[in-house]
Amino acid sequence: MILFGASGHSKSVIDIAESIGERITRIYDDNPKVEAVCHIPVQKFLAEPINANEAWIVSIGNNRNRKKIVEKLTQHFGLLVHRTASVSSWSSLEEGTVIMAKVVINANTAIGKHCIINSGAVVEHDCMLGDFVHVSPNASLAGGVIVGEGTHIGIGACVLPEIKIGKWATIGAGAVIIRDVEDGAVVVGNPGRVIG
Rank of each mutant, 00 (worst) to 15 (best):
Ile69Val: 11
Ala52Cys: 14
Pro191Arg: 14
Ile195Arg: 13
Ala185Thr: 05
Ile69Leu: 07
Val176Ala: 06
Cys158Asp: 09
Ile177Tyr: 04
His125Leu: 07
Ile111Lys: 00
Phe77Glu: 08
Asn118Gln: 13
Val147Lys: 03
Ile60His: 03
Lys113Val: 03
Val176Asp: 02
Gly150Arg: 01
Pro137Glu: 09
Ala175Glu: 01
Asn118Met: 10
Gly174Asp: 04
Ala55Trp: 08
Val98Thr: 15
Val70Thr: 06
His152Gly: 05
Ser86Tyr: 12
Ala185Asp: 14
Gly166Ala: 08
Ser92Phe: 13
Asp131Lys: 07
His134Arg: 07
Gly156Met: 10
Ile163His: 06
Ile153Leu: 07
Lys72Tyr: 14
Asp183Tyr: 05
Asp183Met: 06
Thr170Tyr: 15
Trp90Ile: 01
Lys72Ala: 15
Val70Ala: 10
Val123Ala: 07
His76Gln: 15
Val133Asp: 00
Glu162Gln: 12
Val81Ser: 09
Gly174Tyr: 08
Gly130Phe: 06
Asp126Ile: 02
Ala169Glu: 04
Leu79Trp: 13
Asn190Asp: 02
Ser86Ile: 13
Phe132Asn: 01
Gly96Ala: 06
Ile50Pro: 10
Ser140Pro: 13
Gly120Asp: 09
Lys68His: 14
Ile111Cys: 01
Pro161Lys: 11
Ala55Asn: 15
Lys67Arg: 15
Gly120Leu: 06
Glu149Tyr: 08
Arg66Thr: 12
Asn106Asp: 09
Ile171Met: 07
Val122Ser: 11
Val122Phe: 10
Ile195Thr: 10
Pro137Met: 02
Leu80Val: 02
Ile155Gln: 06
Ala169Gly: 12
Leu73Asp: 06
Val122Pro: 03
Trp168Ile: 00
Ile69Arg: 00
Ala52Pro: 13
Ile165Asn: 08
Val58Arg: 04
Gly192Gln: 01
His134Thr: 15
Ile195Gln: 11
Ser88Phe: 03
Gly78Ser: 12
Gly144Leu: 08
Arg179Lys: 13
Gly61Ile: 02
Ile69Ser: 03
Gly143Glu: 05
Gly78Asn: 15
Val176Gly: 04
Lys67Ile: 05
Cys127Tyr: 04
Asn65Gly: 14
Val103Asp: 02
Ile171Asp: 04
Ser88Arg: 02
Ala185Met: 11
Ala185Cys: 14
Val159Pro: 03
Ile155His: 09
Val123Met: 10
Val194Trp: 10
Gly192Ile: 01
Gly96Pro: 04
Met128Asn: 05
His82Val: 08
Val187Lys: 00
Pro137Asp: 10
Ile116His: 00
Asn53Tyr: 08
Ile146Ala: 12
Ile171Tyr: 05
Asn108Val: 06
Leu80Pro: 00
Ile60Lys: 05
Ile69Asn: 01
Ser140Met: 11
Glu124Ser: 10
Val98Arg: 02
Ile99Tyr: 03
Asn106Ser: 11
Gly156Asp: 12
Phe132Val: 00
Ala185Tyr: 07
Glu162Asn: 14
Val159Gly: 03
Asp183Cys: 05
Val81Gly: 10
Leu80Met: 07
Leu129Met: 12
Gly112Phe: 00
Pro191Ile: 04
Gly78Ala: 09
Ala139Trp: 01
Asp126Pro: 00
Ala173Met: 12
Cys115Ile: 04
